Simulated scan of single mutants.
Amino acid sequence: MTTKAVIRQARMSDYSAVVDGIGDVYWGRDYLPTKYAEFIQDADFLSFVAEVDGEVVGFCSGHLVDNRHSVVKRAGRVKEEYQGQGIIIKLTDAIEGEVAKVGTVKWELMCCVKKNAERFNKSSAGQKGFLQIVHMQTYQMLLLRNNLPKVDPSVFRNVHEMTHEDMEQFFQNEVTWNRLIRQGRMCVHYVPLRRVKENIRHVINHRTKAFMSFGASCVKDASVQAERDVRNATMFSLTTWFPVSFGHAFNSDFHGSDYTDLESHLQMHMNLLSNAECEKVSWVINMDFAIDSDVTERLRKSLDVYGIPLTQNPNVLEQIVFQRN
């Protein structure tokens, strides 16, 4: 383990050293260039850099969510020639030191791809009370905006874009939440959120939209549209988007107790993709790993209709969230 690394709080002036100097660590989909200012200026982020002989060689941030009751480790990275020297451990130790000062944090969370999760489980850190709480199957497709279908969202009467008021009702309704969010956490770009109203700002904002569809649980006539009430909700989805080095990246998560409206949700998301500002679009779809195989097949067939092959990045087959109390 290196003894030379100096850990300090990250500053806006470190942008180039972190973003350009360390480089992209997410296969062309790195979100940090877009979100770096947020990571530095938002009081709910605890961001640190590692320096060796004055050179910034590492970065990591702790994101306080759930009304500051949880911290999520995010954007961790170390320059290649300094990897394996314990720098990331020093960075996370610094975050944990700040978390202790906050005084409200009950849960520590981290999300990683499957191969990193396997490595983590074998490490000493993995033996310190971390439990797997969310397991997602991940699909990643690289598309051209001009080849995407033009979709009229008004024809999907059963799928609605959620307002802040809708989301408040959803977060207040424990029964509906547990029915739709089967693993207990709503992941927004791999940030796992509890049913806490302070999290709504992470679900509806300038970079994220959410959709909900409603079943006929209270309507006997199937031809009658169900009332737009979260108690009738059968499916929920959301998309987060951000610019990346090659164009635009979209990250979509799908949850539900009944996937009858899967195709309509997909088309609502495609409508967002088709309005991207850049020609090249990366679309990532996350589904519950335990989802029925017939739903996965419907996902595949639905995209195939529009000439979109359901593919996976070999580096990102699955995403796993760990929690430590």
Rank of each mutant, 00 (worst) to 15 (best):
A5T: 02
Q9H: 04
M12G: 01
S13A: 15
S16N: 15
D24R: 11
D24E: 11
G28A: 10
D30A: 02
D30I: 01
D30L: 05
F39C: 01
I40Q: 05
A43V: 06
F45Y: 08
F45I: 03
S47E: 06
F48V: 08
F59C: 01
L64F: 01
L64S: 06
K73P: 05
G84W: 14
G84L: 14
I88S: 14
K90P: 03
L91K: 10
A94C: 07
K101D: 03
W107S: 03
E108G: 11
C111D: 07
K114D: 07
Q127D: 02
L131I: 01
Y139R: 06
L142T: 09
N147A: 15
S154I: 02
V155L: 14
N158A: 01
E161Q: 12
E161G: 07
H164G: 00
F171D: 01
V175L: 14
H189T: 04
R194H: 09
K197Y: 02
R201I: 00
R201C: 00
K220H: 11
Q225R: 15
A226E: 05
N232D: 12
S245G: 08
S245E: 06
G247F: 01
G247W: 02
G256C: 10
D258H: 12
L262G: 04
S264W: 13
H265F: 09
M268K: 11
H269M: 15
M270L: 15
S274W: 12
S274M: 13
C278W: 13
K280C: 03
N286L: 03
A290T: 14
D294C: 10
V295S: 10
T296S: 13
L299H: 02
L303F: 11
Y306Q: 06
